[in-house]
Simulated scan of single mutants.
Amino acid sequence: MGLRGWADRLAERIAAVNPELTYANLAVRGRLAGQVYAEQLDAALALQPDLATVLAGVNDLLRPGFDADVVSGHLDAMFSALTAQGATVATFTVPDITRIIPAARPLRGRVDALNQRIRTAAARHGVIVAETATHDVVTDPRLWSTDRLHSGSRCSCDRGLL
């Protein structure tokens, strides 16, 4: 069956109550926020979605030269374009990856900076924010894949988790 990420699981849950759901997952693992903006936004807008989820920036904060303002600028532009077209947009804050990957402790400030900017951009555009940064359950190692960057198979709908 291949990888089933959170977006696939969310679509499955929505389809259970709305069988007319048309779903497209444009995500490509490993993309930086600028790449998501450049490569996926136009395709998303062409679909004229009622609901769009935007999750980008985690790969950026892992790289040297991370700039939270640049990353949030890409997110802000995506939020703006999608909401201007009438889509309900949802996004996520970044979990405290230092609790999943102890060697990542130097990145804690970057996570906090990105999360603050995500909240600010989301508020500016009326974007729904799933506040994952503050919930202990999202840092439970059993819910993560072995790379500790993507959700794992135990992050399942049978327990009410996506």
Rank of each mutant, 00 (worst) to 15 (best):
47 L>R: 12
69 D>M: 01
85 Q>D: 07
117 R>F: 10
92 F>H: 10
122 A>H: 11
70 V>G: 03
53 T>H: 08
75 L>V: 02
95 P>C: 03
100 I>K: 01
97 I>S: 02
37 Y>K: 08
75 L>C: 03
97 I>C: 02
28 V>R: 10
86 G>P: 07
31 R>W: 06
106 P>G: 13
81 A>C: 02
73 G>D: 05
46 A>I: 02
46 A>D: 08
103 A>W: 09
129 V>C: 05
91 T>Y: 00
130 A>I: 15
106 P>Y: 13
26 L>M: 13
30 G>W: 11
57 G>A: 06
35 Q>R: 12
124 R>V: 08
58 V>Q: 04
76 D>I: 01
110 R>G: 07
44 A>C: 10
46 A>C: 00
113 A>K: 12
64 P>D: 15
75 L>F: 00
119 R>F: 06
129 V>S: 05
52 A>W: 04
94 V>H: 01
116 Q>H: 14
92 F>M: 13
133 A>E: 15
104 A>I: 07
116 Q>E: 15
115 N>F: 12
29 R>Q: 14
133 A>G: 14
74 H>F: 01
55 L>N: 01
117 R>N: 11
73 G>K: 03
124 R>K: 14
57 G>T: 03
41 L>K: 11
104 A>S: 15
82 L>R: 09
81 A>N: 01
113 A>D: 15
72 S>K: 05
94 V>P: 01
66 F>A: 04
133 A>N: 11
120 T>N: 10
101 I>R: 11
116 Q>P: 03
35 Q>N: 09
55 L>P: 00
68 A>E: 12
89 V>L: 09
32 L>E: 08
40 Q>W: 01
36 V>A: 11
35 Q>D: 13
61 L>R: 03
69 D>N: 05
127 V>E: 13
123 A>W: 04
43 A>G: 11
89 V>S: 08
113 A>Y: 09
131 E>P: 06
64 P>M: 12
